[in-house]
């Protein structure tokens, strides 16, 4: 158990190092000098050189990489080339917003996908099961931004029930915060639910064929109770795997949905920084997204052990 934990931890650290090198290298090979971009084409060479030395851009790539990593590890990533403001607080602010969005969307997706997927599996030969399958297929085909635009059209413009966009921190006005959260979370979460539903369905279908489910029924459990008590935990293993992988899709979806709903999250920050060629900011945001995906998959690896005792190496 401890061995597995250490093993996974080593893999996590190694992946973080490799991905940081890749992110850094991509930014470094981009054409154009960040200092020149920041100061504009009319700036004098002397001013550009001064800025280069101020931000350490005249150092070797290795030195630049190391100071960047040091900044990330010490949670003090320095300040932006473009605006000159500190990056750390901005990232923290934006990350908080995106976390609200992504985590609630994931919860919504699970709350929808687990029961619906289970019913689809149990009724896979019946019309109701096939109808649910068709609906989920439709959900898979709709991208999150389109879902967002459709939801805005219906619930904000036509019916006027909910605000079309905006963001209020929960501490300022909880009611407004929730109202504004509904549509973006729905557009992210429902599309995600459609994808997850299909994985839940196939996992439950596999479990339904298992001998231990027949044993459970032979004991006297009615079919649905047998499935809930003995099947779902076993079906959870493949679903949790997909959950970890889907988080990447969800983050990408969040970038777009934040733009559609004018939400000041990491996604908006990323797109703004790209358009302003604020390379160090882009680099930091991308790295945070990469870290989020890697850390979640690390957690998923540990979850397996909780779900499936066969993966616990130690003897009883």
């Amino acid at each position: 158990m401890t061995l597995r934990l250490l093993q996974r931890l080593a893999i996590l650290v190694a992946s973080l190092v490799v991905s940081s090198v890749i992110v850094f290298a991509f930014m470094a090979v981009l054409p154009g000098d960040p200092a020149r971009v920041a100061l504009g084409v009319n700036a004098s060479d002397a001013a550009v050189a001064e800025m280069r030395s101020e931000f350490g851009l005249d150092r070797s790539p290795v030195a630049q990489y190391l100071s960047w990593v040091r900044g990330l590890v010490t949670l003090d990533p320095g300040s932006s080339y473009v605006s000159g403001t500190a990056i750390g607080p901005q990232l923290a602010d934006r990350l908080q917003v995106t976390l609200w969005l992504v985590v609630t969307a994931m919860v919504v997706a699970l709350v929808v996908a687990i029961p619906v997927g289970t019913v689809m599996a149990v009724r896979h030969r019946q019309v109701s099961g096939l109808a649910l399958s068709a609906v989920s297929q439709l959900g898979v085909a709709i991208p999150a931004f389109l879902a967002g635009i459709l939801l805005i059209t219906v619930f904000a413009v036509k019916l006027g029930w909910l605000p079309a966009n905006g963001w209020t921190p929960p501490a300022d006005d909880p009611a407004m915060f929730l109202k504004q959260l509904v549509l973006p979370v729905a557009s992210l979460g429902l599309v995600q639910a459609a994808v997850l539903t299909r994985y839940v369905r196939s996992a439950v279908l596999d479990v339904l064929r298992e001998d231990y489910l027949r044993t459970a029924r032979a004991k006297g459990l009615p079919p649905m109770r047998a499935l809930v008590r003995h099947g779902l935990r076993n079906a959870a293993v493949p679903v949790v795997t997909v959950l970890g992988l889907q988080l990447a899709t969800l983050l990408i979806g969040a970038v777009v949905v934040e733009r559609v709903f004018v939400i000041p999250g990491l996604g908006s920050l990323l797109l703004d920084s790209v358009s302003q060629r604020d390379l160090i900011m882009v680099q930091d945001v991308v790295m945070i997204l990469v870290m989020a995906v890697l850390v979640v998959n690390f957690v998923v690896d540990l979850l397996y052990v909780l779900i499936d005792p066969r993966l616990r190496v130690s003897a009883r």
Binding site: D211, Y212, R214, T215, A216, K219, G220, P309
Partner: peptide
């Protein structure tokens, strides 16, 4: 009735029990 009046022992012990 199952498990109380009639009970059954299956062929495959390796897969008949819930692994979790």
């Amino acid at each position: 009735v199952r498990g109380r009046d009639i009970a059954m022992v299956f062929q495959e012990p390796m897969t008949a029990l819930n692994p979790t």
